[in-house]
Design a protein around this nucleic acid. Structure first.
Length: 551
RNA sequence: GGGCGAUUAGCUCAGCAGGAUAGAGCGUUGGCCUCCGGAGCCAAAGGUCAGGGGUUCGAAUCCCCUAUCGCCCUCCA
């Protein structure tokens, strides 16, 4: 609808230029929904943007422009208001068309046109050294829904999980299991404080002992640690996959860092950087000259002990992404990694890629609470509330909706008690309730033997009360919400929209009856309710939240 | 000390690419069940958009400074 208004204005601008002899570039004006009803259904600021060039007051320009607007059968009237806004008032038929469109398109309503952009969304990517905790859950929900939204908006989307399955932390993992294993065999061990202390390590050790006996005790320590690292890593990764599956989080690809190292990609890249004089040796280490590209200092690629850093692999990984043909890379990181943004961007530049092709979303930390009181979460002590535990307690829908109803860069207080409550403090139920209500109306109609013609044949002209117009307006905004959420990489816009839409429907439902009215009114209202159902369903799908027919 | 993020109603948070008189829920107060699901609806009260400068027709929104809070500043991941 917005787009159609825009077309009208563009036409008027052209005609005005021709007839009045103005030679002005067409400014990038906006069409917005005004806050006040009296200002119409849409308003534009185009006149303000022309004042400077035309050297005339905005109001005068607006009045002139209105004269050149083409006639249109769904526009009621156009007014110039205030200092120079142009307000459009639409006829009900304009909105009724939307209902028809939704009913026709169903699952496709809101979809954007295919865009020629291949985007990779990389998210979670937690090291396979321990179970996912609630912070990972937030990243998982945001990444998964953002990928859904981007795909729906017309982007070609791939979702990937990067597995850090080599390096020091895997060795530490193996060693941690090894020590717990020895403990089980009655040996006294000194467990270092920087090892993985969680209870799950003991469980893994116990499992090894039960299945494979005491054989690791007798082999060389290095060999035992290496074998145990592999076992533990695979087992933990399997658990991570299961947790994500329970959270309705899907990946197209699980990318192993190990393959990057074994294929020689990391070595090749390092050699190339040296050749380009972008990397140099100092103090026995190899450094990347990231400070040439805006980072505050240079960064180590190969440590003095000969091992490569996480960062070295990461450069090779991002090079690999680009080489696979992605022209937009979205990385979703915990905010505690923000210090790595400049160096990775520097890496992109050094490798000859546009730094803007990489968008990094930093997700602020989650503070877990219960009844307003903080729940202790210490990773160091190995005591944390896992994602699995949270899901078991509050359920997938509430968890996902809560994670998604915050902008990424705002801290999130996740209160377990609130997430369980079915009140408006927890709007997931409010939205689902609206959906269930429509389903219930259908069921009731069926039970009463009320006949409805095919939705597409229903005459919608009876839809003209204020509540109906508002509801239809809200429905018409869905495609723009999708487009905006995709463009800005802000999936949180969607839950807010759905909450508003649900509110508009509840209001409507409370004031007007759908069933038991004269047939032409009942039918039109029923069609409207079906349109609401479609949009809520499409929205919840993108959020990975279920749309229950009964609650 | 430096960097990033935040600061909007008593609380939790929105505010969509600067637009007209600042938004929602919770909580508070008062209403609505002869009626398709009351997990709902209506109404009232509640604000110096942290503070100060600047940019312009116009700023919660963009720029600078200050304050407070969180996170980061390793040849860790």
């Amino acid at each position: 609808m917005k787009q159609e208004i825009k077309e009208l204005i563009l036409t008027a601008l052209k005609r005005m230029q021709e007839n009045e002899g103005f030679e002005v570039d067409i400014p990038s004006f906006i069409i917005e929904v005004p806050k006040l009803e009296g200002y119409g259904d849409f308003a534009t600021n185009v006149a303000f943007l022309l004042t400077e060039k035309l050297k005339q007051p905005p109001r005068k320009i607006a009045e002139l422009l209105v004269k050149y607007l083409p006639a249109c059968d769904w526009v009621e009237k156009v007014e110039v208001a205030g200092p120079g806004f142009i307000n459009f008032f639409l006829k009900p038929i304009a909105w009724q068309q939307i209902v028809k469109e939704i009913i026709t398109k169903q699952d496709d309503y809101g979809k954007g046109k295919k865009k020629d952009i291949k985007v990779m969304v990389e998210f979670v990517s937690a090291n396979p050294t321990g179970p996912l905790h609630i912070g990972h859950g937030r990243g998982a929900a945001v990444g998964d829904s953002l990928a859904n939204v981007l795909a729906f908006a017309g982007y070609d989307v791939t979702r990937e999980y990067y597995i850090n399955d080599v390096g020091k932390q895997m060795c530490t993992l193996g060693h941690s299991v090894y020590l717990r294993y020895l403990e089980l065999l009655g040996e006294k061990v000194d467990f270092p404080s920087d090892f993985y202390k969680g209870e799950y390590i003991k469980d893994l050790a116990r499992e090894v002992l039960e299945k494979e006996g005491e054989k690791y005790k007798d082999m060389p320590q290095d060999e035992a640690i290496s074998l145990l690292a592999r076992f533990a890593g695979e087992r933990i990764l399997a658990d991570i996959k299961a947790d994500l599956d329970n959270f309705s989080v899907k990946f197209d690809n699980w990318f192993s860092e190990k393959t990057l190292v074994e294929s020689g990609a990391v070595k090749t890249l390092l050699a190339w950087l040296k050749e380009q004089n972008l990397a140099y040796e100092k103090d026995g280490a190899l450094w990347f000259a990231s400070s040439h590209f805006g980072d505050e200092k240079d960064r180590v690629l190969v440590k003095a002990d000969g091992t490569t850093t996480y960062f070295a692999s990461d450069l090779a990984y991002h090079k690999d992404k680009i080489e696979r043909g992605f022209n937009l890379l979205v990385d979703i990181w915990g905010a505690d990694h923000h210090g790595y943004v400049p160096r990775l961007k520097a890496g992109m530049q050094a490798m000859g890629y546009a730094p803007d092709a990489l968008k990094i979303l930093l997700i602020q930390l989650v503070h877990l609470k219960r009844g307003g009181k903080p729940v202790a979460m210490s990773t160091r002590a190995g005591e944390f509330v896992t994602l699995k535990e949270v899901l078991a307690e509050v359920g997938k829908d509430a968890a996902r909706f809560t994670f998604l109803t915050r902008s990424c860069d705002s801290h999130l207080d996740f209160d377990l008690e609130v997430a369980k409550q079915q009140t408006m403090e927890n709007p997931v139920f409010y939205v689902q309730y609206a959906y269930a209500r429509v389903c219930s109306i259908e069921k009731m109609a069926h039970e009463r033997g009320i006949f409805f013609p095919p939705l597409i044949q229903i005459d919608l002209t009876p839809l003209e009360t204020k509540e109906e117009i508002n509801l239809m307006k809200m429905l018409s905004q869905f495609p723009e919400v999708i487009e905006g959420a995709a463009r800005t990489l802000e999936p949180h816009r969607l839950p807010y929209y759905l909450t508003e839409l649900a509110g508009e429907f509840h209001r409507y439902y409370n004031k007007h009856r759908i069933l038991g009215m004269p047939p032409e009114i009942s039918q039109a209202r029923f069609a409207l309710a079906q349109a609401v159902k479609v949009v809520i369903k499409n929205g919840l799908n993108l959020l990975g939240v279920s749309a229950p027919e009964k609650m």
